[in-house]
């Protein structure tokens, strides 16, 4: 019983990231409405970000901002701070993510203007005409 418990709590973050990854991918493939596809893309993206930050978590570690002893010396124990590298990568990825979202929504508005709809099958019918 204990082993099963440790198996679950040792991996649950990765599982959640994978479940979200497939929910997002499923939305991107199956949904007919382009706005829903973009929401699927956002979920897909955050799932990947969740996975990468999960890699940098350390048990018993604090935020990666150095703490100082009373005599102004930094406390430099690498196991006491979370891994800063995934945080840097994800921080910039989130801002780039909103830029990508902006471009996607701009294209969506353009499609609406040209075809009068954002439903995939209606756009295809409109293009065949």
């Amino acid at each position: 019983m204990d082993e099963l418990f440790y198996f679950i709590i040792a991996k649950y973050n990765y599982w959640a990231a994978l479940v979200l990854l497939f929910i997002g991918l499923f939305g991107m493939i199956v949904k007919n409405n382009l706005m829903k596809k973009i929401i699927g893309m956002v979920i897909f993206q955050t799932a990947i970000l969740l996975f990468i930050v999960s890699i940098g978590v350390k048990r018993g570690a604090t935020v990666p901002i150095l703490q100082f002893s009373p005599d102004k010396q930094p406390l430099l124990d690498a196991t006491a701070y979370a891994n800063p590298l995934p945080h840097v990568l994800i921080l910039t990825a989130i801002v780039v993510g909103v830029a990508v979202l902006g471009v996607a929504l701009a294209l969506l508005q353009k499609i609406q203007r040209v075809h009068g709809t954002i439903e995939e099958d209606e756009i295809l019918e409109d293009m065949r005409k």
Binding site: T46, S54, G56, V63, I90, I94, V95
Partner: peptide
């Protein structure tokens, strides 16, 4: 909760 405070800050403002 994963101690990624800078990321949380960005997510709150951006996402």
């Amino acid at each position: 909760h994963m101690r990624a405070v800078d990321v949380a800050f960005t997510e709150a403002a951006v996402g």
